[in-house]
């Protein structure tokens, strides 16, 4: 009996030819990921910058994503240890912050790949223990998903170059999420034309629908619902 499903990747999901649904998860609990899975999302983007998001909690959240048939991306600054530990959770990929240009994007991609393709240090997450290290390294090269978060200080020309860096799988444009309130989303999306795009759904109705549409963050959705309900009930 095969007890373990073969691992799936974001690329597998995108190759199904439909736009994917995603949620930024800020509530530090595997239950928050399970909620996204039950609600038919395809991807969760786990933002570990929030209080309570310990490495142990994030690992449990990634495990919940695998259990729900979801893909999990973890947000990480483009520093070797941070990227390595983000992927050591067993996540399907990373959303990298702090990238400024193509050079830093190339360096960050190298952190996600094992030698000879990159500089990631050897380790297999628990999920992949049924593979040899060589098998896992090969799987990683073709399947770990690398998204670059567009920041407010990035020029359009830089976005174009970053999107073209080998190993960069997607550009993420999400003003108001992950500390990027100040970006010009229209300019960033235009600059990323041709790249796989992760963006807030309906944010710019006249722009192309993103390949991975984000509903927002769980914390923001919940807070808005609480506020709207309370406002109505208090004022009649």
């Amino acid at each position: 009996m095969t007890r373990l499903m073969p691992p799936w990747s974001v690329r597998d999901r995108l190759e199904e030819g439909r736009n994917l649904r995603g949620l930024v998860v800020e509530i530090p609990s595997p239950a928050a990921v399970e909620i996204a899975g039950i609600a038919d999302c395809d991807i969760v983007i786990i933002d570990p910058s929030h209080p309570g998001m310990t490495r142990e909690t994030v690992e449990g959240m990634v495990r919940a994503a695998w259990g729900q048939g979801l893909c999990a991306l973890t947000v990480a600054p483009s520093e070797p240890w941070a990227v390595m530990t983000a992927l050591d959770t067993g996540a399907h990929g990373v959303v990298l912050t702090g990238i400024r240009d193509a050079k830093s994007a190339r360096a960050a991609v190298a952190m996600t790949r094992f030698p000879p393709h990159g500089r990631r240090e050897a380790n297999k997450p628990l999920r992949f223990q049924f593979m040899t290290m060589e098998q896992f390294a090969n799987w990683t090269s073709s399947n770990i998903f690398v998204a670059i978060l567009i920041g407010g200080d990035m020029a359009a020309a830089d976005v174009v170059e970053i999107a073209g860096v080998p190993g960069v799988d997607a550009i993420m444009v999400a003003p108001g999420l992950l500390g990027t309130a100040d970006i010009d989303a229209r300019a960033a999306i235009s600059a990323a034309t041709g790249a796989t795009l992760i963006a807030l759904v309906g944010d710019l109705p006249d722009m192309p629908q993103p390949h991975i549409a984000l509903a927002g963050s769980d914390a923001a959705i919940l807070g808005t619902a609480y506020r709207d309900t309370a406002d109505y009930l208090r004022t009649g």
Binding site: R21, L23, A31, A32, I35, A36, I38, A39, D40, C41, L200, V201, G202, D203, P205, A213, A215, G216, S217, D218, A220, I221, L222, G223, T224, A225, Y226, T229, A230
Partner: peptide
């Protein structure tokens, strides 16, 4: 107000949030 998981699931399972021309949250 009903459980937080219900609030979130209902929001995410509402087709309108994935198609309407407004930002969800």
């Amino acid at each position: 107000i009903e459980e937080e998981y219900r609030v979130l699931m209902k929001h995410l399972m509402c087709p309108d949030i994935w198609t309407t021309k407004r930002r969800a949250a």
